[in-house]
Amino acid sequence: MQTNTPPRSPRGTRRTIRLTRRGRIALIATGAIVAGTAVAVPLLMTDDEGDPRPTSLVVPEGWRATQVYDAVDKALALPAGTTKKSLAKAHLRLPNDAEGNPEGYLYPATYPLGENPTPEKLLTAMVDTANEKFTGAPIAAGAQRNALNVYQAVTIASIVQAEAATEEDMGKVARVVFNRLERGMPLQMDSTINYALGRSTLHTTTEDTKIDSPYNSYQRMGLPPTPIANPGEDAMRAAIDPTPGDWLYFVTVKPGDTRFTADYAEHQRNVAEFNRLARSASGGARDT
Results as ranks from 00 to 15, higher is better:
49 E>Q: 04
75 A>T: 15
33 I>V: 13
59 V>Q: 02
83 T>W: 12
67 Q>T: 13
66 T>A: 12
30 T>I: 01
45 M>E: 14
65 A>W: 04
32 A>S: 06
62 G>I: 09
64 R>G: 08
24 R>S: 04
41 V>E: 10
35 A>P: 11
25 I>L: 02
69 Y>G: 09
33 I>L: 03
64 R>D: 11
59 V>W: 02
38 A>C: 03
51 D>V: 02
57 L>V: 11
83 T>I: 09
36 G>Q: 05
68 V>W: 08
58 V>L: 06
43 L>A: 11
83 T>M: 09
35 A>Q: 07
63 W>F: 14
45 M>H: 12
28 I>M: 04
35 A>M: 02
45 M>R: 15
74 K>R: 15
85 K>M: 14
85 K>D: 15
63 W>L: 11
24 R>W: 02
65 A>T: 12
59 V>S: 05
30 T>S: 07
51 D>W: 00
40 A>F: 02
81 G>R: 08
48 D>A: 07
36 G>P: 11
73 D>W: 04
49 E>G: 00
48 D>Y: 11
81 G>D: 09
58 V>F: 01
64 R>W: 08
84 K>P: 00
69 Y>E: 08
52 P>C: 04
85 K>R: 15
80 A>Q: 13
25 I>N: 04
26 A>S: 00
79 P>D: 12
26 A>E: 00
41 V>Q: 10
31 G>C: 00
52 P>A: 03
59 V>K: 02
61 E>R: 10
85 K>L: 14
40 A>E: 02
44 L>C: 10
43 L>V: 06
71 A>K: 06
74 K>C: 05
48 D>H: 12
45 M>K: 11
78 L>G: 12
39 V>N: 06
41 V>K: 08
84 K>W: 06
79 P>W: 01
57 L>N: 13
33 I>Q: 05
27 L>V: 03
67 Q>D: 10
43 L>T: 01
45 M>N: 09
67 Q>C: 09
56 S>E: 14
56 S>D: 15
70 D>Q: 14
63 W>Q: 10
48 D>W: 08
52 P>R: 01
63 W>D: 06
74 K>H: 09
33 I>F: 00
42 P>G: 07
53 R>N: 14
42 P>S: 06
60 P>N: 05
29 A>G: 12
73 D>V: 08
38 A>I: 12
59 V>D: 03
76 L>T: 08
78 L>N: 08
31 G>P: 01
29 A>R: 06
60 P>C: 02
73 D>K: 08
77 A>L: 13
59 V>H: 03
41 V>M: 03
62 G>E: 09
69 Y>F: 15
39 V>D: 04
81 G>W: 03
